[in-house]
Computed example of a mutant assay.
Amino acid sequence: MRIPPPIVTLVFAAVIIAVDFYSPSWIKMAGLFWFSFAFFFLAVVLLLPAVIQFVHSKTTVNPYTPQKSTVLVSAGVYRFSRNPMYLGMA
């Protein structure tokens, strides 16, 4: 069974939120919200331009349909990372 990477990311995000919600208060660190927000912002900065680059190149974002790919994207954030979408989801 193939599960799309964004679904895997959302499931793990839900697990992280549930663990945070149900963990005792003495475990929680001060400033963790801003630390998490910084990583979320970095993820969006990587993901959004990557998806936009695919849309402008008129190629598929779906990794399970490589036959629908029309072009190899190597501009924008792809100059610095081979898989910025996966990096952003991680």
Rank of each mutant, 00 (worst) to 15 (best):
residue 8 V to K: 12
residue 58 K to V: 02
residue 79 R to S: 11
residue 84 P to D: 03
residue 14 A to R: 02
residue 85 M to L: 14
residue 22 Y to R: 03
residue 20 D to F: 14
residue 54 F to E: 01
residue 42 L to C: 05
residue 67 Q to R: 07
residue 61 V to G: 04
residue 90 A to M: 07
residue 9 T to N: 04
residue 76 G to W: 02
residue 64 Y to M: 13
residue 12 F to C: 09
residue 89 M to I: 01
residue 90 A to I: 02
residue 65 T to D: 09
residue 70 T to C: 04
residue 24 P to R: 08
residue 16 I to R: 07
residue 85 M to Q: 14
residue 20 D to T: 09
residue 54 F to T: 00
residue 78 Y to F: 15
residue 53 Q to W: 10
residue 47 L to M: 14
residue 83 N to M: 06
residue 48 L to R: 08
residue 88 G to V: 01
residue 6 P to F: 08
residue 11 V to Q: 04
residue 47 L to C: 09
residue 12 F to E: 06
residue 6 P to K: 09
residue 25 S to W: 13
residue 29 M to N: 10
residue 31 G to N: 04
residue 40 F to L: 12
residue 79 R to P: 06
residue 13 A to T: 08
residue 69 S to P: 01
residue 35 F to Y: 05
residue 56 H to A: 10
residue 57 S to W: 02
residue 42 L to K: 00
residue 73 V to G: 02
residue 75 A to Q: 15
residue 76 G to T: 04
residue 66 P to S: 05
residue 12 F to N: 09
residue 86 Y to T: 06
residue 37 F to W: 11
residue 3 I to E: 01
residue 54 F to N: 06
residue 90 A to F: 07
residue 70 T to N: 10
residue 86 Y to W: 13
residue 13 A to G: 08
residue 6 P to Q: 07
residue 43 A to Q: 05
residue 4 P to Y: 14
